[in-house]
Amino acid sequence: MTTVAVLADPPRDGLVLSALAEETPLTQSEATDLYAAMLRDSCRAVEASGGELLVNYRAEEDISDEYEGSQESEAQVRAAVRPALENPDEARFEVQVGSTFAGRVGNTVTHLLEQEGVNTAAAVDPTGPFLARQVIDNAAMKLRRHEVVLGPADAGRVYYAGFANPIDFTDAYEPPAVRTLTERGDDAGLSVDFLPMQPVVETASDLATVLSQLQARERAGRWVPAHTAEFFAESGLDVAASDEGLTLVRN
């Protein structure tokens, strides 16, 4: 069983998905709601899988004062995640430790492998909305044969990183993260394998890609992340073609 840590920021305006409010028709509040929806879907996917869910929330003291919330970070993340879980009282919540994303991933994964003795540990960022239960279970199967399993996204990013042994996590997510993490695994003498590529949501282009794929899945009657799909249905966002490529519009 793989322990899967979902590295969650408290859903606060400006702290999460701030680029979307600048580059798309979404307001900052709507971008925050989208982040919360993807966080719920990510946690539910892990809970439904054969893995163990660990919600790894951002420490309040590591968040700039300009993003101060009405609740403490842990309480806000718990409140955001709870509606998505079948057994919310059984979910494990722990604070992140580290000054960078790579450091926080490294501290969590290394602690799980070396201090808690889990067989495999993984880290996911909740901005990958198509992280389904089957993807997590597929990764767990791969981790039986390989010590590092990565889920690549476009622009060299990753939506999933799983480990049977620790690596040197210092700046391990330096772009392109998929190559850097692979190099660190290879440097440690570890076997590396990959999951199918999936999109993540950080930019306007990412958002257009995810929305078009979600619309296609819905039309074909295939699985979609429920909370993310509900957000898009209520947002009125649509994708249109232009000379520059895909453009987001509001119906």
Rank of each mutant, 00 (worst) to 15 (best):
V249Y: 00
I63Y: 06
P152E: 05
P88S: 05
V210W: 05
W223A: 11
L143E: 01
N56D: 11
A140R: 08
G162R: 00
V135Y: 09
D238Q: 08
G162P: 06
R133T: 15
S242V: 08
D206A: 04
P25I: 09
R92E: 14
A208C: 01
D62T: 10
A21R: 12
A155F: 02
R40K: 13
A132Q: 01
D62K: 01
V158T: 14
P166G: 00
G50C: 03
S212G: 05
N119I: 14
T110S: 14
E52L: 06
A84G: 09
S73G: 10
G185D: 03
P129M: 01
L39Q: 09
L26T: 09
Y67V: 07
L131D: 04
L190K: 10
T110D: 10
N87Q: 15
E218V: 09
S70W: 13
V210K: 05
A80V: 13
S191L: 14
A240D: 08
L17T: 12
A59E: 13
D171F: 03
V192C: 02
T182R: 03
L113Q: 10
R92A: 11
G221Y: 04
R40D: 05
M141A: 15
H111S: 14
S29I: 11
S29N: 10
G245C: 07
A80P: 10
V239F: 04
D154P: 05
I136S: 00
D65M: 12
E68L: 14
R217H: 15
P129F: 04
P11R: 00
A177D: 04
E72N: 14
R179L: 11
M38N: 09
L214E: 02
Q213E: 15
A37Q: 05
L207E: 07
V158P: 06
V239R: 04
F231L: 01
S29L: 13
L248W: 04
E174I: 07
L246K: 07
L17I: 12
R104G: 12
D168S: 07
